[in-house]
């Protein structure tokens, strides 16, 4: 066991997978000589060279496409997109090609790419660097979408993603790269499907994914002081979604809140609410609550930004509402 940061966990997964298999390569802007915007490939350029740690031009659609093409020829590219906002430029190759080639070829050709990208708000990065597009990938058939909440999953899910034959989108988070956690020294893998109860509780279920899991955990602590026992469920994977774990937890607590950093309309939370309605309507003792970002482009002004983005405090108050305490 050693305590390592989220970025180190990603770096270790890159290193091990590249050492294990020559067909694994990494591509992205500034990932080589510069060592990576979030150091995810730090030092690996010297170890694996420019043919495997590939510094790309600022051509997201086509370098993602090149990664996809290489994957069709048997390679295992890990494609870094510096910010999920720039992934919008790669949507044609991702959504129209990678997500569909396996299906429209009748299962003949796989696109085993991994696309890693931070997708959340940081501090005052303003509208064009604060997109949270989880919902868009979540609604695209043919992709896997995972949202590691800490180093353990960041490492283990990246390793599984490299070995999966499907295109996997890994949504990381600017505010989590320095988050630390103990992880085993031996090699291990974490599944690309399945939610996880990260805190047991009996009165209410707080559902989160990616960064919002941490908001839920902070809120759960405060609720405990109020004598409310909150269970926290990390979805881990948005696609495929683990409906069963949602149902189990809601049937246990009978009360539920969904916390997301995305805007609400047609968002991840909307889908989870639909699942709750369809799968465990009669288990509910109270009206569920969604905590989400305001329906605005993320403002630059710090006060406005704070008002737009959900906080642990919002989750706490939302939970009190579900509990009928306010």
């Amino acid at each position: 066991m050693a305590e390592i940061a989220y970025w180190e966990a990603i770096r270790r997964a890159h290193d091990e997978e590249m050492a294990n298999d020559k067909l694994v390569i990494a591509m992205g802007e500034d990932i080589g000589v510069a060592g990576g915007t979030y150091k995810a490939t730090f030092g690996l350029y010297d170890k694996y060279g420019p043919e495997r740690i590939i510094d790309t031009p600022i051509s997201e659609n086509s370098y993602t496409g090149i990664g996809i093409g290489a994957s069709m020829a048997g390679m295992r590219p890990i494609i870094e997109i510096m910010s999920i906002n720039f992934a919008l430029l790669a949507l044609d190759t991702l959504i129209n090609a990678a997500a569909k080639i396996h299906y429209m070829s009748g299962g003949q050709i796989s696109c085993p790419i991994v696309m890693r990208t931070p997708g959340g708000t940081a501090h005052q990065l303003a509208a064009q660097h604060s997109a949270r597009l989880a919902r868009m990938f979540m609604s695209t058939s043919g992709l896997r979408v995972v949202t590691p909440r800490g180093p353990l999953d960041a490492y283990g899910m990246l390793k599984s993603a490299v070995r999966s034959n499907d295109p996997v989108i890994i949504i990381e988070h600017e505010q989590m790269y320095n988050l630390k956690e103990d992880i085993p020294d031996e090699e291990f893998f974490r599944p690309l499907e399945g939610a996880e109860v990260v805190r047991e509780g009996s009165d209410i279920t707080l559902i989160g994914y990616n960064y919002s899991v941490h908001l839920c955990l902070q809120a759960a602590k405060r609720l405990e002081a109020d004598g409310i026992s909150a269970e926290v469920l990390d979805l881990r994977a948005l696609k495929p979604l683990d409906r069963e774990s949602i149902r189990k937890s809601v049937e246990k607590t009978h009360r539920v809140l969904v916390a997301e950093e995305d805007e609400a309309p047609v968002g991840v939370g909307a889908e989870i609410m639909a699942v709750i309605t369809e799968d465990c309507f009669y288990a509910l003792d109270a009206q569920p609550v969604r905590i989400h970002a305001a329906d605005v482009p993320v403002p630059y002004n710090a006060k406005l930004e704070k008002a737009a983005i959900p906080s642990a405090d919002d989750v706490y108050h939302g939970a009190l509402k579900v509990m009928g305490k306010i």
């Binding site: 496409g65 069709m72 020829a73 390679m75 190759t93 090609a97």
Partner: peptide
């Protein structure tokens, strides 16, 4: 034969990627 694609221009990078695979292997 790695496919026909409806999106005009999409095969350019895919082809370069296939070539990258050949070169790498």
């Amino acid at each position: 034969f790695m496919g026909g694609y409806a999106l005009v221009g999409q095969p350019f990078p895919l082809a370069a990627g296939l070539a990258m695979g050949c070169k790498h292997k």
